[in-house]
Amino acid sequence: MLILSLTYVKPNEEADKHMEPHMAWVKEGYAKGWFLASGRKVPRTGGVILAVGDRADIEAYVAADPFIIHGVAEYDIMEVALTTVTEGLEALKR
């Protein structure tokens, strides 16, 4: 599993300007079967996406995020080899 942690490097107002295309990009990640969960950080300093798939493919996809293209956010991608999950979350171990 990959944890995609994005951090805004510009004010939230700038992120808001690109939120609609970013959310379309997020929805496409779900459609591809790569994204399993996502949401905003609290406080709102960025977001987190739980993803599965080939790391190189995910990294290439992240590069196409409108937040990256417009310099709104930076990503930290962390790979985790889950060994145990609660019932119902077995997809996280892919």
Rank of each mutant, 00 (worst) to 15 (best):
Val52Glu: 11
Lys10Glu: 12
Asp16His: 04
Gly71Glu: 03
Ser38Gly: 14
Leu89Cys: 10
Phe67Glu: 02
Ile49His: 08
Met1Lys: 01
Ser38Arg: 08
Val26Phe: 06
Met19Pro: 00
Lys27Arg: 15
Pro21Leu: 02
Leu6Gln: 05
Pro66Cys: 05
Glu14Met: 08
Ala51Cys: 07
Phe35Ala: 11
Leu36Tyr: 05
Leu36Ala: 07
Trp25Ile: 06
Ala63Arg: 14
Val42Ser: 07
Glu14Arg: 13
Glu28Tyr: 09
Leu50Val: 14
Tyr61Gln: 11
Glu90Ile: 08
Gly46Trp: 03
Glu59Ala: 10
Tyr8Ala: 10
Ala81Arg: 11
Pro43Met: 07
Met23Arg: 15
Asp57Val: 11
Val52Lys: 10
Leu82Ile: 12
Leu4His: 01
Glu20Ile: 07
Ala73Ser: 14
Glu87Phe: 05
Glu14Ala: 13
Glu13Ala: 14
Glu59Asn: 04
Ala73Phe: 01
Thr45Ile: 10
Ile68Asp: 02
Thr83Glu: 14
Glu13Ser: 15
Lys10Gly: 00
Thr7Trp: 05
Val42Met: 14
Tyr61Cys: 06
Ala60His: 05
Ala31Phe: 06
Asp57His: 06
Glu79Asn: 09
Gly33Cys: 03
Ile68Gln: 10
Leu6Trp: 02
Met78Phe: 01
Met19Ser: 12
Tyr75Asn: 04
Glu14His: 03
Pro66Asn: 04
Leu6Cys: 11
Gly39Glu: 01
Ile49Arg: 09
Ile58Gln: 08
Lys10Ser: 05
Glu13Ile: 04
Ser38Ile: 01
Glu20Lys: 12
Gly46Ala: 05
Tyr75Ile: 06
Glu28Met: 10
Leu36Cys: 09
Glu87Arg: 08
Pro43Phe: 03
Ile49Cys: 10
Val26Glu: 09
Lys32Leu: 15
Ile77Ser: 01
Glu59Phe: 00
Gly33Arg: 05
Ile77Asp: 08
Pro66Glu: 06
Asn12Arg: 11
His22Ser: 10
Val62Cys: 15
Gly47Pro: 08
His70Phe: 03
Ala63Leu: 05
Ala31Asn: 15
Leu82Phe: 12
Phe35Gly: 01
His18Glu: 13
Ile58Phe: 12
Met78Trp: 00
Glu14Leu: 04
Phe67Ser: 02
